[in-house]
Design a protein around this nucleic acid. Structure first.
Length: 288
DNA sequence: AATTATGTTGCGGT
DNA sequence: AACCGCAACATAAT
């Protein structure tokens, strides 16, 4: 799933569903998905979930009366977190999601199940096994957090700082925006969308951007991710929220996956290239 | 059937 | 230090 808006969508849903609940069991179906921690169940049973934070695309679960224990979850490419309540209901809203839409739990790609005292289960599914859940301590968590750059959706995010720093970078603007240590949260989809909004080509060298272009990118990055959160994220291939639903921002995409289709702004055909090692979509006419 | 693509990021090389 | 390419893995599409 993946980028900040999708992770934030899941975080907000889970806040309402699992915070305050007590863990009674952890079942590991694939050891890699718990960072090969053989005692994860022993460490978690009896703990009550206190809060869920997020840094970039990383989710951080904390526990009541435990100041030195945290559960990190990173979904990478195909990770998913599903909440299934006592009745086996995914959406918690009273009716089951149809079997056609959602696989059985645990399913083929279920890697970990977290069982709660009220009968609910939090499933971590991850087809490609790049993602992880992992226990950590306060010191490690703080070190991890420090590696992330600021988030463009943050009220405090400073475009003056962004303009100054981005124009020191020698790589393409696409590569720079994908770098989580520079700014956190953007991934392949939202970088392409933000650059379209800002009318800047993804293959431009960051150091060659004008201040005006850099400012436009800064604003666009925050805007596109805030808007995507409002719509529950984007489903391009695998993303499903904690209720098994797809993101509604997919219909709002302007360039991502739109190669050979007309640009919604100028009508020229959207092009797809490879930039920073990633499939990259842009309008060759109105992005300069 | 082999090749290429896929929403991420950490590593080892220059 | 900054940057690049690739590997980790499973699956679907050409």
């Amino acid at each position: 799933m993946p980028e900040l808006p999708e992770v934030e969508t899941v975080r907000r849903q889970l806040l309402k569903k699992v915070v305050g609940k007590k863990l009674v069991g952890v079942e590991v179906f694939h050891s890699k998905s718990v960072n090969y921690d053989e005692s994860i169940e022993d460490k978690l049973v009896g703990k009550t979930l206190d809060s869920i934070e997020r840094v970039g695309k990383l989710m951080i679960f904390s526990f009541k009366k435990e100041s030195d224990l945290f559960l990190l979850a990173h979904l990478k490419m195909t990770g998913q977190l599903f909440w299934v309540d006592k009745q086996g209901v995914l959406n918690g809203g009273g009716h089951k999601v149809s079997a056609a839409d959602v696989e059985e739990f645990p399913g083929r790609h279920t890697r970990v199940a977290f069982y709660f005292a009220d009968g609910g289960v939090l499933y971590f599914n991850d087809m490609r096994l790049f993602g992880f859940t992992k226990l950590t301590n306060k010191e490690d968590l703080e070190a991890t957090k420090k590696k992330f750059g600021p988030e463009p959706i943050d009220k405090q995010f400073d475009c003056e700082w962004f303009v100054g720093e981005v124009r020191k970078k020698k790589r393409s603007i696409k590569a720079v925006l994908l770098d989580q240590t520079f700014v956190a949260g953007l991934g392949n989809i939202y970088v392409d969308e933000a650059l379209w909004l800002a009318k800047v080509r993804p293959d431009r060298k960051a150091e060659k951007l004008t201040k005006k272009e850099a400012k436009a990118i800064c604003i666009a990055a925050g805007k596109v991710m805030k808007e995507a959160i409002k719509y529950g994220g984007t489903t391009f291939q695998h993303f499903q929220d904690s209720e098994g639903k797809k993101g509604n921002f997919t219909g709002k995409l302007k360039v991502f996956g739109k190669q050979d289709q007309p640009c919604p702004r100028c009508g020229s055909f959207i092009k797809k290239i490879r930039e920073a090692g990633r499939g990259t979509h842009f309008c060759p006419n109105c992005q300069k």
